[in-house]
């Protein structure tokens, strides 16, 4: 597997065998980048991993969003994406009070939800699922959504490490919004710093180990 930064219009590799994946097109014998990012050749598949840009919702993503409006049948949610999201009442767990939506989630409140559907005019969300719902207390920080995989790490290794060392509850939205809650302010600030440490080093190899060292040193 090889990885290299490519820019739009650049030839990544030539050959009939390769298959163009996300952000890649075929022109004759060549596979060409159709966006800026990290080109990854894995077996026959060539794709581009974005390094920057806005969050693009995908079905099944866990996202954190802010209530910006309440309608007769649900909530409009800003999920930091090109489109507004909508959370219909029917996608809420049963104990929600249908007659006073504001009581459940008012304008300006934050929720953690799952992307249910993507339509041309917006995104539908659901709260049905474990750990989904309104966020109480804690604080929200924002990172570039493309750095989320790094923050989470392989099978959650990075985020679990940060949770453990900072003693904070953390929920990472795929849209780059992260919710933190700690016993003390110091813990929260510490976990925020740890997350920034990770997002500022997108190209570093063995980042989990380095983060561990950093966490242990700072913790002293």
């Amino acid at each position: 597997m090889s990885r290299e930064v490519v820019i739009p219009g650049e030839t990544i590799i030539a050959g009939e065998d390769y298959l163009p994946g996300d952000g890649v097109r075929r022109e004759g014998n060549e596979l060409v980048a159709s966006r800026f990012g990290l080109a990854e050749i894995s077996g026959r598949l060539v794709r581009i991993i974005p390094l920057s840009g806005v969050y693009i919702p995908r079905r099944g993503n866990i996202v954190i969003g802010r209530v910006i409006d309440i309608t007769f049948n649900g909530w409009s949610i800003d999920i930091n994406a090109p489109y507004l999201a909508f959370l219909p009442i029917i996608e809420c767990p049963r104990f929600f009070n249908r007659y006073d939506l504001a009581e459940n989630a008012d304008i300006g409140d934050m929720i953690v939800a799952k992307v249910l559907n993507i339509k041309t005019r917006g995104v539908d969300l659901t709260l049905k699922g474990r750990g989904l719902g309104k966020l109480e207390k804690g604080m929200i920080i924002a990172v570039n959504s493309n750095k989320v995989p790094r923050v989470i790490g392989k099978e959650g290794s990075m985020i679990n490490l940060i949770k453990e060392k900072s003693k904070c509850d953390i929920i990472v939205g795929q849209n780059g919004l992260i919710w933190l809650k700690g016993e003390t302010i110091e813990d929260e600030l510490f976990s925020e710093k740890a997350i920034k440490f990770v997002t500022e080093r997108p190209f570093v190899e063995g980042l989990t180990e380095k983060t561990k060292e950093w966490l242990e040193e700072k913790k002293k």
């Binding site: 930091n80 109480e136 929200i140």
Partner: peptide, 8 residues
Amino acid sequence: MEISNLTK
């Protein structure tokens, strides 16, 4: 994104 109640 504008500020949330929570962050405030």
